[in-house]
């Protein structure tokens, strides 16, 4: 069976018949590793994150990296043109990607990107929102839920103040932004299911 990992993080998403599944998987791993490292560096700069236990830091990052990357790369999804630009710089049409097996997940990613982009967040707002997404006490396996919860609450307060400051006339903007979090969870679950279908036996 051909393996096509049509992920925006993948530098070589096309079918490569001469490569073994193991080699395809290793190439993919090399493609997304720098992005994961950037997420870890970002987390280290969240005030209070490094004070959490190492296990809780790892748990938050394992659970939230996809969501952070989804927020960060929402701009790669061009809703108007119905295209996705991969980190390699190559642009693929929605139809081409669907042909590679990216069905429902891709539609939901486009839907999310459109809604997030419509909020026209500043870089600062986007960064703080991403921190709120990452520091979520309800991730499975958190040991010190209270510490993570307190940190997330302080980040949410800061985000609320920032969003209110940049647009005092639109009180719903902050609420709309927080409502993107359950959308991200849904996407994360769909992405996990997709990944499991590619598992190496």
């Amino acid at each position: 069976k051909d393996i096509v990992l049509a992920c925006p993080m993948n530098m070589c998403p096309q079918d490569e018949p001469n490569k073994t599944p193991q080699e395809i998987w290793e190439d993919f791993s090399l493609s997304f590793t720098p992005a994961v490292r950037e997420v870890v560096e970002f987390a280290k700069h969240i005030p209070g994150f490094s004070a959490l236990s190492e296990n809780d830091q790892v748990t938050l990052l394992k659970a939230g990296t996809f969501e952070v990357l989804m927020v960060r790369f929402a701009s790669l999804f061009n809703v108007k043109e119905q295209t996705v630009t991969f980190i390699s710089g190559a642009t693929y049409s929605l139809e081409a990607l669907k042909g590679m097996g990216m069905g429902g997940l891709l539609d939901t990613m486009f839907e999310f990107s459109e809604k997030l982009n419509s909020l026209e967040l500043t870089a600062e707002e986007l960064g703080l929102f991403t921190a709120v997404v990452l520091v979520s006490a309800d991730r499975s396996g958190i040991e010190n839920i209270n510490s993570v919860d307190l940190l997330q609450e302080s980040l949410i307060r800061a985000l609320r103040a920032l969003v209110s400051k940049s647009d005092p006339c639109d009180a719903s903007r902050f609420t709309k932004l927080l409502l993107k979090m359950p959308d991200l969870r849904t996407l994360n679950n769909m992405h996990s299911e997709k990944l499991l279908s590619f598992r190496i036996d």
Binding site: S29, F32, T33, V36, R37, V40, E41, K44, E54, Q57, V58, L61, K62, A63, T65, H191, S192, L195, L196, F198, R199, I200
Partner: peptide, 27 residues
């Protein structure tokens, strides 16, 4: 692999990055 993060080797990458593993950095 029962969870996708393990499937990707994500935990290993994260732990190394958290520790500031210099061996894997370009410089």
């Amino acid at each position: 692999f029962s969870d996708p993060a393990s499937n990707l080797g994500l935990e290993d990458i994260i732990r190394k990055a958290l520790m500031g593993n210099l061996e894997e950095r370009p410089e």
